[in-house]
C-alpha cells in the first residue's frame, strides 16, 4: 500500500512525475527507493533523467552546460556499484531524497574528475622508506582542531632523516 504523505501521489505508471518528484525531494523514502530501483532497471527512464539533467533545473547545475549523452548512464552504473551511496535514503524521515541523489551524483562526478587528474607520486624516494610506521592519528586528530575539522585517515610514509643534512 503506497503512502500518500506527500502532495503528489507516487505514480507507478507515470515515470515523468516520479522523476520530477524524486528530484524535487517530494517522495517518501519508500517511494524514492522504488524510483531509484526503477531507474536502475529501466534504460528509458534513465534517458529521461538525462533530459531532465540537461534542462539543468533539477540537480542545481550539476548537469548544466553540454551534457555528455552517456553521463547519466555512467553515473547510474556507478551508483549500481556503490550501494552505500544510497544509504542516506534510509536516514531520518523528512530528509530530502533529491538532496541525497544530488550528493551521490556529485561524489561520482568528483571521483571522476580526480581520478583523471595527474597523481602526485610520493615525494620520498622508495629507497628512503626505511622507518617503521608511526601512529600519527592522535596528533593529526588534535591538529584538526585548527585545520579542517574533518579527518581522513592519512596514508603516511616514513623515513629516517638527518635534519642537518636535509636543510636547504
Amino acid at each position: 500500500m503506497m503512502t500518500k504523505s506527500t502532495s503528489r501521489d507516487f505514480p507507478q505508471e507515470n515515470e515523468q512525475e516520479a522523476l520530477s518528484a524524486l528530484l524535487d525531494g517530494e517522495l517518501t523514502r519508500e517511494q524514492a527507493r522504488q524510483t531509484l530501483r526503477r531507474l536502475r532497471d529501466d534504460a528509458d527512464m534513465r534517458a529521461r533523467l538525462a533530459e531532465y539533467c540537461a534542462v539543468g533545473d533539477a540537480l542545481r547545475g550539476l548537469c548544466d552546460g553540454p551534457v555528455a549523452p552517456d553521463l547519466t548512464l555512467r553515473v547510474m552504473h556507478r551508483l549500481e556499484r556503490e550501494p552505500t551511496l544510497l544509504a542516506p535514503m534510509r536516514a531520518t524521515p523528512g530528509r530530502r531524497p533529491g538532496l541525497w541523489l544530488a550528493a551521490a551524483v556529485v561524489v561520482v562526478i568528483t571521483w571522476g574528475v580526480w581520478s583523471r587528474l595527474p597523481e602526485q607520486g610520493p615525494a620520498l624516494p622508495l629507497a628512503a622508506h626505511d622507518a617503521p610506521p608511526m601512529d600519527v592519528q592522535p596528533y593529526l586528530a588534535a591538529h584538526q582542531d585548527f585545520a579542517q575539522a574533518v579527518i581522513a585517515p592519512a596514508e603516511m610514509q616514513f623515513t629516517r632523516v638527518s635534519l642537518t643534512e636535509s636543510r636547504p
Partner: peptide, 25 residues
Amino acid sequence: HVSLFLEPATRPVETIRGQSRQGMI
C-alpha cells in the same frame, strides 16, 4: 596551520620524517 606536540621522551627519539601519499601532510 602547523602543530607542534611536545611530550617526555621515554627513550632516545629517532628523527623520522613522514609524508602523506600526495604530500599534503
